[in-house]
Amino acid sequence: KVLVLALYDYQEKSPREVTMKKGDILTLLNSTNKDWWKVEVNGRQGFVPAAYVKVL
């Protein structure tokens, strides 16, 4: 399983997205889209901007 680090806070803007806080460790589920990556955080799955996270 691939983990990513949240570099910035992100507030979800649609039901398909998830909120994350800077420093959160998320599970990367899909990174085929260069702009939006699907992650799991706190038991929820959704998209975050790829530029806001870094693969650990």
Rank of each mutant, 00 (worst) to 15 (best):
G46C: 03
K21W: 12
N30G: 07
A51K: 13
N30Y: 11
V4T: 03
L3K: 08
V41M: 15
E12R: 12
Y8L: 12
V4C: 10
K1F: 14
G46W: 03
N42L: 13
V53M: 06
W36P: 00
S14V: 05
V39C: 06
Y10E: 00
E17I: 04
T27N: 09
M20K: 00
V18N: 05
R16V: 14
N33M: 10
P15G: 13
D24V: 04
D24S: 08
L5N: 03
Y10W: 13
L56R: 03
L28D: 00
R44T: 08
N33Y: 09
T32P: 04
L3T: 10
V2M: 12
E17H: 09
V18S: 02
W36N: 02
P15D: 12
K54G: 10
N33W: 09
Y52T: 06
T27G: 06
E40F: 07
Y52E: 02
W37H: 03
L26E: 00
D35V: 12
F47N: 04
N42K: 11
K38M: 15
E12P: 14
V18F: 13
S31R: 10
Q45P: 05
T27P: 15
P15S: 15
K34R: 08
S14H: 10
A50D: 01
A6Q: 00
L29T: 05
D35M: 15
P15M: 09
L3A: 06
K22Q: 15
S14R: 08
V55P: 10
W36E: 05
I25S: 03
E40L: 09
I25E: 04
T19D: 04
G23F: 05
S14I: 05
K22D: 02
W37S: 03
K54A: 15
K1D: 14
V18I: 15
A50Q: 06
E17Q: 11
L5P: 00
N33L: 10
K34P: 11
K13Y: 05
K22G: 06
L26S: 03
V55G: 04
K54E: 08
E17S: 07
Q11Y: 13
N33I: 07
T19I: 03
L56Y: 13
L5D: 01
S14L: 08
L5F: 11
T27V: 15
K21C: 08
L28N: 01
G43E: 07
N30E: 12
K22E: 09
L56H: 07
V39H: 00
N42T: 08
V41K: 14
K34A: 15
G46T: 02
R44P: 01
P49I: 02
D35F: 15
N33E: 14
S31T: 11
D9P: 07
G46K: 02
K13F: 06
K38S: 09
K34E: 09
N42F: 13
A6K: 01
K38G: 06
W36F: 09
I25H: 06
N30K: 09
V41L: 12
S31N: 15
L7R: 05
P15T: 09
A51L: 12
P15W: 12
Q11V: 15
T19M: 04
G46Y: 03
Q45L: 10
L7Y: 04
V2C: 09
D35E: 13
P15Q: 13
K22R: 12
V55I: 14
N42G: 13
V53R: 00
Y52F: 12
L26W: 02
S31L: 07
K1L: 14
K1R: 11
